[in-house]
């Protein structure tokens, strides 16, 4: 995993991925946006998790993918950063 990522960067990348790949252009995506609230279903959430794996090498295990951790780009970033730190 890259050591140069921080939560802010990760949030930005996740929001960018959601905007470009998953939601209609009219949908506003902020770090604190609820993923379900902007219309994302469970398959879209899997795509986001796999995006993190592909782009940053962060392979999140199922156990930590709780509803709270995948509530928003911000909560997912926080969880990913914390998990990555534990692995180092």
């Amino acid at each position: 995993m890259s050591i140069n990522i921080n939560q802010e960067l990760l949030e930005k990348e996740i929001c960018g991925f959601i905007k470009s790949e998953l939601v209609a252009k009219e949908i506003v995506v902020e770090p604190t946006s609820s993923l379900s609230g902007i219309g994302l279903d469970s398959f879209s959430k899997i795509e986001i998790v796999l995006f993190l794996e592909r782009k940053f090498g962060i392979e999140l295990p199922d156990e930590i993918l709780t509803p709270e951790n995948i509530e928003s780009p911000s909560s997912l970033s926080k969880c990913a950063i914390e998990y990555a730190a534990q692995q180092e």
Binding site: S42, K45, I46, V49, D62, L65, I70
Partner: peptide, 10 residues
């Protein structure tokens, strides 16, 4: 379902 599969219910 959460105890079997975290992200997708399908």
């Amino acid at each position: 379902a959460q105890t079997y599969t975290r992200l997708a219910i399908s």
